[in-house]
Simulated assay, not measured.
Amino acid sequence: MRIEAAVLPIPLAQKNTAFAKLMNRLNSADEHKAGMAEARTWVAEKVLADEGDTIRTLRLKKGLNQTQFAALLGTTQAQVARIEKGNTDPQRSTCKKLREVLEISADKLEEIMDRQEQAYQQKAGK
Rank of each mutant, 00 (worst) to 15 (best):
D107L: 13
L58R: 09
G125W: 10
Q122A: 15
Q66E: 07
P90I: 01
N16W: 04
T88D: 05
G35V: 08
V7E: 11
L12P: 07
K108G: 00
I104D: 04
D30C: 04
A81Y: 03
V101T: 07
D107Q: 15
N16Y: 06
K62F: 00
I55D: 02
A34T: 10
K46S: 13
G63E: 04
Q122C: 06
K85G: 04
Q91K: 15
M1G: 15
I3S: 14
V80F: 04
D114N: 11
K85A: 07
G125K: 13
M36G: 03
V43D: 01
A20R: 14
L58H: 03
A34R: 09
Q121H: 06
P11C: 09
Q79P: 01
F19P: 02
Q66V: 04
Y120P: 01
A78H: 08
Q14V: 14
G74P: 00
Q14A: 14
A20S: 14
L98Q: 09
Q122N: 11
Q14N: 10
E45Q: 13
I10W: 00
Q77M: 10
L8E: 15
D30L: 14
M23P: 00
A34I: 07
T76F: 03
Q14D: 14
R99I: 06
F69I: 05
T88P: 01
A6Q: 15
A34M: 08
Q77E: 12
L26Y: 03
M113R: 10
G86Y: 01
L60N: 00
E45V: 05
D114Q: 13
Q122W: 05
D107W: 03
H32L: 08
K46Y: 08
A106H: 08
L73C: 08
M36E: 04
M1N: 13
D107K: 13
I104L: 05
R82L: 09
T57Y: 07
N16K: 11
Q66G: 07
G86E: 02
N16F: 05
I10V: 15
A106C: 06
A13S: 15
L64A: 03
E4V: 15
A124C: 06
R99H: 02
G86K: 02
E111M: 10
N16R: 11
M1L: 12
E31T: 13
R59Y: 04
V80Q: 03
K85R: 08
Q77S: 10
F19D: 10
I55M: 05
A6Y: 13
A18R: 12
V80A: 04
R92C: 07
A18N: 11
A13P: 02
E117I: 05
R40S: 04
A39R: 06
L109W: 02
R2H: 11
Q118R: 15
K61Q: 12
L58G: 01
